[in-house]
Amino acid sequence: MAVTHEALADEMFHMVSEYYGKKNLKAGDLTKAMIAKYGEAECTKDDCKAAIRILMDSGRCVYSYFGGSFITLPHKEGAAPD
């Protein structure tokens, strides 16, 4: 394995940050993007799964549900009372 799970997690975090407010990304979008970048030999679905777990457990990203689950940056949501 050429890419470490930590490095994949970092890269996913950058991708989520870049798209924040423009497009919501699903776990599958991040996985597909990483595999496209590194090729299946270097980066498997299971590697991406492990990376997503590292990313979410670090608290840098959170899951959101908008009629489907997405990965996004932590923020105060519109429905929450002040």
Binding site: M56, D57, V62, S69, H75, E77
Partner: peptide, 11 residues
């Protein structure tokens, strides 16, 4: 509310 949860879980 779409983003509350426990740490690390999305469900």
């Amino acid at each position: 509310g779409g983003i509350v949860g426990v740490m690390g879980y999305g469900g």
